[in-house]
């Protein structure tokens, strides 16, 4: 351990603003990349699944109404 106490660790020998700003921005951006990639995938899957459900419903109704669809 390079520090005597937790306070010491946070103070970074007087360089706290520099060390924590660099590490903070890096951590936030990496976390942002992960969260964005996850949200993107979830949204995409939801959209594709919704489309398939909608497609299935239209297929069913058009099947029921049969050839009369063009008259509607």
């Amino acid at each position: 351990m390079a520090f005597d106490s937790f306070q010491d660790f946070l103070a970074m020998g007087g360089h706290a603003p520099y060390v924590w700003a660099s590490w903070g921005v890096t951590g936030a951006l990496l976390a942002g990349i992960v969260l964005h990639a996850r949200a993107e995938r979830r949204q995409l899957l939801r959209r594709l699944q919704r489309r398939e459900r909608r497609q299935a419903t239209t297929d069913r109704t058009s099947h029921q109404t049969g050839g009369q669809r063009h008259e509607a």
């Binding site: 390079a2 970074m12 020998g13």
Partner: peptide, 16 residues
């Protein structure tokens, strides 16, 4: 951040 020794010239800012 916590275990590497501080730089003899730059102190803890080197952890960047």
């Amino acid at each position: 951040l916590a275990f590497a020794p501080a730089d003899y010239q730059q102190g803890n800012s080197f952890r960047i």
